[in-house]
């Protein structure tokens, strides 16, 4: 079972306490956007076999959203941080680089 550290309330939450919320750091597009932007935002998904960033909600705990950096090939968790971040903080990137040198995700590395 996956366990993630909730950066808001500080507890180590088991998967049954959490709700997965899909790909993190999506750029949202609204009315007036072109078809390409809508298609990318609504349907095209990062689906890496490796380093991935995704949103989680601590549903049966503090109820707040956070983002987890995780490896989809091994289920290793590199770290979690609040969902109010527009990009992964440096210490998370460093933690990933230590474990997965040369990693990349969208335009991040």
């Amino acid at each position: 079972m996956l366990t993630l550290h909730c950066p808001h309330c500080g507890t180590l939450a088991a998967e049954t306490e959490l709700t997965a919320g899909g790909e993190a750091h999506l750029k949202r597009f609204g009315p007036g956007s072109d078809d390409d932007s809508f298609e990318g935002y609504l349907f095209m998904r990062e689906n890496p076999k490796g380093v991935h960033f995704e949103r989680w909600r601590h549903s049966y705990g503090c109820g707040k959203w956070f983002i987890a950096a995780r490896c989809t090939a091994t289920l290793e968790v590199f770290g979690t941080y609040p969902a109010q971040s527009s990009a992964p903080p440096q210490h998370i990137r460093d933690a990933i680089t230590a474990r997965r040198p040369g990693w990349g995700w969208r335009d991040l590395a």
Binding site: M1, N47, P48, E54, T72, T74
Partner: peptide
Amino acid sequence: TDGFNNFTQRGSFH
């Protein structure tokens, strides 16, 4: 299915 991306060919016990 599990709710999160996964390539490990094993899922969550719950």
